[in-house]
């Protein structure tokens, strides 16, 4: 994959294999993400998309291979990576407010035992404004719609002030307005030199949203600029026989 070899790499994954109990979920993955791009990861259910994100974040221990963030191990660069987990991975009936969830984004830089102060609160307010949720800050999170929940998660990631953002299905179950707003924020982030990686499942919007795409099915089937690799042939390989695409 030499398309972007002249640009600095935000993330470089080489020979990454992840297995649960000796059953591989990801086989020998190579992925390179240049700085300042938006990359989509697509693939069928169980193809290892979420596992890929989690192993970049060090949440899942790989069996082999390495992940480097700006040329160094993730552990040393933790603060430079922001994370939006799958919305459905948490209990939305947890007793907390929108503002409180966004403040959680500052916990990483706060370190142990310290409580968020005025600076952290200001950052949280700004992030909520950016996602258009400033009127909801006192709202109990169980009362949010899917789109609002996702904005709330996005604001929490923005507070992390990272250079790379990893997002797991941010458009899953959100309204069209929220989807549009999120895409706008992603583009604005890119223009400020941030790098964004998005696990995605809606093939219709791939060409509009992403610069680069990784097509995943346990192995990397194809990777590169959307215009080059997002082909019918690659889709068939990625999704096997059951690609149900009106588009292609």
């Amino acid at each position: 994959m030499n398309t972007n070899s002249n640009r600095e790499l935000a993330i470089q994954i080489s020979d990454l294999t992840v297995a649960y109990e000796e059953t591989a979920v990801l086989w020998d993955i190579d992925v390179e993400v240049p700085v300042g791009t938006i990359m989509g990861i697509i693939g069928p259910n169980g193809s290892g998309k979420t596992t890929l994100i989690k192993s970049i974040m060090g949440i899942v221990e790989p069996s082999a291979g390495s992940v480097r963030v700006f040329g160094r191990p993730f552990r040393e660069q933790r603060r430079r990576v922001g994370y939006v987990p799958q919305r459905t991975s948490v209990d939305w009936d947890f007793p907390t407010t929108v503002f409180d969830v966004v403040l959680m984004g500052t916990y990483g830089s706060l370190g142990w035992f310290r409580r968020p102060g005025a600076a952290e609160r200001d950052a949280a307010h700004m992030a909520l404004e950016r996602v258009g949720m400033q009127d909801y800050l006192k709202r109990q999170i169980s009362e949010l719609s899917g789109g609002q929940q996702q904005r709330c998660f996005l604001a929490r990631a923005l507070v992390q002030e990272a250079d790379i953002y990893l997002m797991d299905e941010p458009f899953q179950g959100v309204d069209a307005r929220t989807e549009h707003a999120i895409v706008e924020i992603l583009r604005e982030m890119r223009s400020r030199g941030k790098t964004v990686i998005v696990v995605h499942h809606d093939l219709q919007t791939v060409e509009r949203y992403f610069d680069l795409i990784t097509m995943l099915n346990v192995r990397v089937v194809a990777q590169g600029p959307v215009a080059e690799v997002f082909t019918e042939e690659n889709l068939r390989r990625t999704y096997g026989g059951r690609v149900e695409l009106g588009r292609v």
């Binding site: 069928p44 169980g46 193809s47 099915n217 346990v218 192995r219 590169g224 026989g241």
Partner: peptide, 25 residues
Amino acid sequence: ALLYKDDVCECGIVRGGLEKHEYEQ
């Protein structure tokens, strides 16, 4: 190995995934 654990990937990945140069541009 790929066929064995295969509840996700069908023939496409086994054929396409085996040899890198097959699908590399």
